[in-house]
Amino acid sequence: MSTSSSSIEQAESCSSWSQLPFDILEMVTKKFNSIEDLYSLGGVCSSWRSVALSIRKHKNKTLPWLMLTANYNHTHRDFFSVAENKIYRSNYPKAFYDCQCWGSPFGWLVTFAYDRQTFHLLNPFSPLSPRLPLPTLRTFPSPPDRSKTLLSLFITKAVVVVLHSHNLEESNHHDQFLVFAIYGLSKNLAYSRPGDKIWTGVTFKETTPSSSGGQLDIIHLNGQFYSVDSNGSIWLLCDVAANAPNPPTAIPFASPPPMNELLKTICGKSGKTISLLEMDAELHLAVRFQHRNTRKTLLIEIFKCDASTREWQKLTTLGDYALFLGTCTSISIKASDYSASICTPGCIYYCYDDYKNHAEIVPPDIGIIDVARREIEFLNVDDKRTYHFSAPAWVLPTLL
């Protein structure tokens, strides 16, 4: 009898933790100094998560984390914190097993499960947040033929866009998400929202994605959507809205910037990677040149597009900005919003992975570039990770 009573008391004691008054929890958690502690706190229950969100706004921001590579049978993903030089593990078995992942600046990941051919949006830093379903692989405008196409090669990149708010801590409306996917051998473009039944393809006017080398990246800037192809040409995406009167199309917006011709020759066609970025609400383009033999980064050039003339200016400094560039995700932040000890302005933190070249095992290329000095510091972040299944990706942790 005493054992039974003790068990009941323990159960009641455990359940009462979620009933603690908000002001008491808030008083205790204000003593936390680490943002990472708040992520652990927010995973306990919904009431503790609301406290963590409240305290989160008064703490220093955290830098993007690098989601490290993984094998197909991993039920977890490891994240490298640049600020703390430490690896954290997120256990999310049903979400990560047999899944390829792409990061975002909003904390949410896009996952693709090979066995079920399904896509989801999920937040690995907030287990209480729901997994948001996206349309299946078979609903793409040109779905892959499993007998001819490796599923791991079908989706080149997935990009998460927030339509109504750039700060997810101010809104928890999941209908604000839009996911773009670059797919197929021709690197076509399609998009969907959580709950949609199909992926909607984008038609490119005046030329085809294949003749332009296909699309490489997408960005949402000042209410407009832009993409960049492998030549560096910028496209303006039209009629992407939910109730647009016309089918979505893309029209030419800007010609490629004047890239380094010597490096283009040294690196070859496959040694160039292009990303789109936003700095001070203006469109920027990053061109990474990779050595064709060692596959190491040689240089990253940054260009700014003049919105009125649509001409490019090559930057020799990033000012107050720091960039996080990678195969799957690119993020720009203002260094002054962070502690000076953890974020250096004018630097590019990069991580590129040759995960689709199965002929040779090559660890991810990770380092920091000082743009003004044109100096590169290579980083050794657990370089034994040579899995090709899911590439490393930058993600900016949030609790929503």
Rank of each mutant, 00 (worst) to 15 (best):
S6A: 12
E9I: 15
Q10N: 13
S13F: 11
W17K: 10
Q19E: 12
F22C: 01
F22P: 00
D23G: 01
T29L: 13
F32P: 01
N33D: 10
E36T: 15
D37M: 03
S46T: 15
S50D: 10
R56H: 10
K57T: 11
H58N: 14
P64H: 05
M67P: 01
L68Y: 05
T69N: 11
A70N: 04
A70W: 05
H74Y: 14
H76Q: 09
D78R: 12
K86R: 14
N91D: 14
Y92G: 06
P93W: 06
A95S: 12
W102C: 07
S104N: 04
S104V: 04
P105W: 01
W108K: 04
L109R: 03
T111P: 02
Y114W: 10
R116M: 12
Q117S: 14
Q117I: 00
T118P: 08
F119I: 06
N123C: 06
F125Y: 11
S126C: 10
P127S: 07
S129V: 07
S129Q: 15
L134Y: 06
R138C: 08
R138V: 11
S142V: 13
D145R: 08
R146P: 00
S147G: 03
K148P: 07
K148L: 15
T149W: 01
L153F: 14
K157G: 02
A158M: 11
L163Q: 11
H164A: 09
E169S: 15
E169I: 10
E170I: 12
H173I: 14
H174M: 09
F177Y: 14
I182E: 02
N188L: 10
L189Q: 01
L189P: 01
A190P: 08
G195T: 06
G195S: 06
D196Y: 03
I198G: 00
W199N: 07
T203L: 05
E206Y: 14
S211Y: 09
Q215R: 08
Q215F: 15
Q215G: 00
I219K: 00
G223D: 05
Q224T: 07
S227M: 03
S233M: 11
C238I: 05
V240G: 02
N243H: 12
N246I: 07
N246D: 09
T249Q: 08
T249E: 06
M259D: 00
M259F: 09
E261D: 07
I266K: 14
S270V: 06
T273Y: 05
I274E: 00
S275D: 06
D280I: 01
A281R: 13
R288H: 00
Q290V: 15
R292Y: 12
L299A: 08
I302S: 02
F303C: 00
C305P: 04
A307N: 08
A307C: 09
R310V: 12
Q313W: 02
G326H: 04
T329E: 13
K334C: 11
S336Q: 11
S339Y: 06
I342T: 13
I348S: 02
Y352G: 02
D353V: 03
K356H: 14
I361M: 10
I361R: 11
D365K: 02
I366W: 01
I366E: 03
I368A: 02
D370S: 12
A372Y: 09
A372R: 10
A372W: 06
A372C: 10
E377M: 12
F378P: 03
L379V: 03
N380D: 13
V381P: 05
D383P: 15
H388L: 11
L396T: 12
P397S: 01
L399C: 03
L400V: 15
